[in-house]
Simulated scan of single mutants.
Amino acid sequence: MKITKREILGFILGILAYFAIDTVNWDQVKADAETGYNDGYNADQKSSSTTE
Rank of each mutant, 00 (worst) to 15 (best):
M1W: 14
M1P: 12
M1L: 13
K2A: 14
K2W: 14
I3S: 02
T4K: 02
T4S: 06
K5I: 10
K5R: 14
K5A: 14
K5S: 10
R6F: 03
R6M: 05
R6D: 06
E7W: 06
L9R: 13
L9S: 13
L9C: 12
G10Y: 03
G10R: 07
F11H: 12
F11M: 13
F11V: 14
I12G: 02
I12C: 05
I12Q: 03
L13V: 08
G14P: 00
I15L: 07
L16T: 13
L16A: 15
A17I: 02
A17T: 01
A17V: 01
A17L: 01
Y18D: 00
Y18V: 03
Y18F: 09
I21N: 00
D22I: 01
D22V: 01
T23C: 04
V24Y: 00
N25L: 09
N25F: 09
N25K: 09
D27E: 12
D27C: 02
V29C: 06
V29K: 05
K30E: 14
A31I: 06
A31W: 06
D32Q: 05
D32M: 04
A33F: 07
A33N: 09
E34W: 11
E34K: 09
T35K: 15
T35V: 10
G36E: 10
G36T: 11
Y37V: 02
N38H: 06
N38V: 04
D39L: 07
D39A: 08
G40D: 01
Y41W: 04
Y41Q: 06
Y41L: 08
N42S: 07
N42P: 03
A43Y: 08
A43L: 08
D44V: 15
D44T: 14
D44F: 15
Q45Y: 13
Q45F: 09
Q45I: 12
Q45A: 12
Q45E: 13
S47K: 15
S47G: 14
S47M: 15
S47V: 15
S48I: 07
S48Q: 12
S48R: 12
S48G: 09
T50I: 08
T50S: 15
T50D: 11
T51G: 07
T51Y: 07
T51N: 08
T51A: 08
